[in-house]
Design a protein around this nucleic acid. Structure first.
Lengths: 133, 133
DNA sequence: CTGGATCCGATCTGATACTG
DNA sequence: CAGTATCAGATCGGATCCAG
């Protein structure tokens, strides 16, 4: 049951390293990014927003983000259950970074499309660009 | 011998995800960060700058960064051998974000030191802060 | 609807020994 | 000095089934 929270075992490492450990999971940055755009998302919405994630990974990632104080989990005791996730203030401070990273990534992807004769309109990007932008 | 370069298999993913794949390795951001500070580093210098890395990981990481066009490897055919690593232009565009991440990480670490009664002067941070700042 | 639990292969990381 | 090679351990990620 031990989540691998990074907080509370910090220190002894470079701040850059630390930061990456905290948001460097396979889906963490994306989840933060989406949460920033939509402000609030329910579990099911996240599942649909990240079509490639399994429930296990989503739950696990959300727990780690929560333990690391980057997201807030708000439960409504109803039937059927309802849970909402949103960013913490700490996470908000990270958004500019993720935004820049996103722009940089987009630029690089476009650059590759040109040099590798991959047509940008090949449907590949379409899925996510609509989500990201 | 296949290095796991991210370039050329891009697309089909979110730009944030893509960017993270490219600089998200365990040591990648740190190496870029140090290279930015020192401009040029030799293999041995990198080994000393990242005291916890093994030669295998260092070599592997450097190769991936090189394949992904983030660092330049310059060999001097001398005895003893000499190799210098430096950032590419593309990588330079990334530095502001890493700096941002670095500041965020530092802030969080300090915050933790307060709440978790870990004394900041416990030698833990000393090693790296002198390198990072 | 929002997860938890388990099993298992893939991937990543490290320790150690060796080399031009 | 700047790596390479090999083996093994650790961690990650996914599939599947189950539950309040």
């Amino acid at each position: 049951m031990k989540n691998k929270s990074v907080v509370a075992e910090a220190t002894q490492m470079c701040a850059v390293d630390y930061a990456f450990k905290r948001i460097g999971g396979k889906y963490k940055a994306r989840i933060l990014w989406y949460l920033n755009m939509k402000k609030v998302l329910r579990y099911g919405e996240l599942t649909r927003t990240l079509p490639d994630i399994t429930t296990k990974m989503l739950t696990q990632t959300l727990r780690e983000l929560e333990d690391d104080n980057l997201i807030v989990r708000k439960m409504y005791y109803e039937v059927p259950p309802k849970v909402e996730y949103s960013l913490t203030e700490t996470a908000h401070e990270l958004i500019p970074f993720i935004a820049h990273l996103h722009n940089w990534g987009k630029k690089q992807i476009e650059k590759e499309s040109l040099t590798n004769r991959i047509h940008p309109d090949e449907r590949a990007l379409a899925v996510c660009q609509t989500e990201c932008d």
